[in-house]
């Protein structure tokens, strides 16, 4: 180390073995570096391969009769799906279901975020609202379905309310913990730069909590679909849940499977959507220098 006269002498006499011993502490490398196209393609194939394997197993299982006589093959499900789409029935029911979920999430997600923000930013609010929210969270909200029908009738309101409740909790918890997990040293530095409460919230606390908020969003969407299934099983004559109940009455297992596959696809699609949002909002995590 050339920082003291005594050691400079030593360094001059021998090769400077000590100086390189301390390497500069680099920041952790960016989580993902842009990869060559071939590797990216391989990755994409790998991601699809699991799904393809499941389909193959399904097909093989029905061909060989492993899954019992009543299980339809993928081909039969495909045919049933095409028929349903052609008759317009599928689109109608799907639209109703999508509207229900959208309406529930459109209220539930902002509500969960708002509660999380209020509690995360202000201790006194947390003290007041945290205990009741935790208590409600522990209540399986799907068990509220019959109660909601009594309260809000058999119409759309009870369904919207049911779908609305579920997503509140994962968002509340993740927003709150995301905020509490923001590095206080960053907050302090930003404060020393003259940022006020609003500036701190907007430029430090919210962006810092964002990765965790996205986790909450993913969970919320999953719960939204789950609640839809339950909400559409009773007291309705529309929606893909009804399509399935109706098919059960007539032992149309192929139609039931069409609905099951629909649920799976909806889940995958909403996850993709969140991923897309994440990629845009959390670009800094990947170390992109921008394009």
């Amino acid at each position: 180390m050339p920082s003291s006269p005594a050691e400079t002498l030593v360094v001059g006499a021998a090769p400077p073995v000590r100086a390189p011993a301390r390497t500069e502490p680099r920041p952790p490398p960016p989580a993902r570096t842009p990869r060559p196209a071939a590797v990216a393609l391989l990755r994409r194939l790998r991601r699809v391969s699991g799904l393809v394997a499941v389909l193959l197993l399904w097909w093989l299982g029905t061909e060989r009769g492993w899954l019992g006589a009543t299980t339809p093959s993928p081909a039969a499900v495909w045919d049933a799906g095409v028929d349903l789409i052609r008759s317009g029935e599928y689109g109608e029911h799907l639209a109703v279901s999508l509207e229900r979920v959208a309406r529930g999430l459109a209220i539930g997600i902002p509500l969960g975020v708002l509660l999380g923000l209020l509690a995360g930013l202000t201790r006194s609010v947390e003290d007041v609202i945290d205990a009741p929210i935790q208590a409600f969270r522990m209540l399986p909200h799907l068990a509220l379905a019959p109660v909601f029908i009594i309260w809000f009738g058999i119409g759309e309101t009870s369904k919207t309310m049911l779908i609305l409740i579920g997503p509140i909790f994962p968002l509340y918890i993740n927003v709150l913990h995301g905020i509490r997990g923001v590095d206080n040293r960053l907050v302090e530095a930003a404060r020393s730069c003259g940022l006020g409460r609003w500036g701190l919230t907007r430029r430090v606390i919210l962006p810092g909590a964002l990765p965790q908020i996205f986790v909450g969003l993913r969970q919320a969407l999953g719960i939204g679909w789950l609640t839809l299934v339950v909400a559409e099983q009773t007291a309705t004559t529309s929606g893909i849940g009804y399509l399935m109940t109706d098919a059960r009455e007539f032992l149309r297992t192929d139609v039931m499977f069409v609905v099951l596959v629909t649920y799976a696809l909806l889940g995958v699609l909403s996850d993709l959507l969140v991923r897309l949002l994440e990629r845009r909002a959390l670009a800094w995590r990947r170390g992109f220098t921008g394009t």
């Binding site: 952790p28 960016p30 800094w284 220098t289």
Partner: peptide, 12 residues
């Protein structure tokens, strides 16, 4: 225009 995560300790 770089992200801070791409800087070395000295640069940061």
């Amino acid at each position: 225009d770089a992200w801070p995560g791409t800087l070395s300790g000295g640069e940061s």
